[in-house]
Design a protein around this nucleic acid. Sequence first.
DNA 1: GGCCATAGTAGAACGTCGTTCTATAATTGA
DNA 2: TCAATTATAGAACGACGTTCTACTATGGCC
Lengths: 204, 204
Amino acid sequence: MAMMPPRPLRTASEEIPSLVLRAALALMTEEGPEGLTVRALARRAGVAPMSIYNHFGGKDGVLDAIMVDGFALLATWADVTVDDARTTLVAGSMAYRDFALAHRSHYTVMFLHQFVGYVPAAETMYVAAKGFEILTGQVRRCTDVGVFPGRSYVDVAQQLWAAVHGYVALEILGINFASDRDRVFRDFVEAVITGLDAPLDDAT
Amino acid sequence: MAMMPPRPLRTASEEIPSLVLRAALALMTEEGPEGLTVRALARRAGVAPMSIYNHFGGKDGVLDAIMVDGFALLATWADVTVDDARTTLVAGSMAYRDFALAHRSHYTVMFLHQFVGYVPAAETMYVAAKGFEILTGQVRRCTDVGVFPGRSYVDVAQQLWAAVHGYVALEILGINFASDRDRVFRDFVEAVITGLDAPLDDAT
DNA sequence: GGCCATAGTAGAACGTCGTTCTATAATTGA
DNA sequence: TCAATTATAGAACGACGTTCTACTATGGCC
């Protein structure tokens, strides 16, 4: 059989970003955050290491791209809008966890792993802040109709996010002793929302 | 003035472990997890890099030591025992956060940062598991007196831990938009426990 | 169809990392 | 005092992110 060239000698410029991004996510999925090295990334994408610097400005640029991509994916959970504001919040939380578990590499870069020396670009921070605004909006819809009486919607958003993130973080880290992860999570979200909807206890 | 030798030419063996441990925590506090390198650690402790291998078996051994030390510190929050089982749980959660904020380096190693290539030693995992047993014990005391009706104490422990860890994690990562972090945390813990104490909603 | 600017590639190189190994010298106990 | 420990200094290895250089494949234009 004829020896076909292992690969076109040069990768087209417009294909490089998507190839690198796909390779980065595949590498992280298979080997974890530590598997994401520039050399391995280039090898996996079938691209020269230099191309990563030409197109992303280095490893940090790749991480920024994963962040932005992840927030774009996550933003779609805002579409979960039901009539009832509170039900929307439950559905949103469920979708948040679904996203985190389905896109662990994204979630790891976004909220779990601190890559050494990586500081997100300003644009990345902006996208992240917009993501939080979506959540606060969902909560605000609730407070507008009288849910979470006596509480600030920003505080409630922070509290709900903390709860969901905490559950997901421990789950991804492999620290989950619950009997049925899905059910326990749903019960958890319901309980947190119920508790936040209860009147504030002012006792010290 | 007389030139006193900058340091004894050799560090006594028995002093090395504590010197290294202290230096490790100081380095992490000042420069973050990425500042914790073997060479910097040895320099800071006034010790030869080789000593870290002789006494800890490498960087992983230092991380293990921090883990074990951290769980020992954390275990003291179990001493927070009040008559009322539910109040104990609230106090324990507050103490958990106090520990995390007061010993950020410990907490970072234990639950936040994934150090590349680091896998905790078996003994470290054992100590960690014992820590979780303390928490489950606290929750079990509640279920024994009728709090959290219809729920498994293991599940409730997982849920409460997720909530507290999530809040602390976002706080340490600098992602906290709440108005008053202390008060919002206390309200959060109260709300989570209240919600988990409410009857289970079996509707799908 | 041929030419040239663009841009991907290969590879060496620098300083850093964790780690191992060597030889030396300080300390300690018998 | 002598010998066994053991901390130290330093070179070395492979891998990391990053930069630079020389080379060459590609695509647009005349």
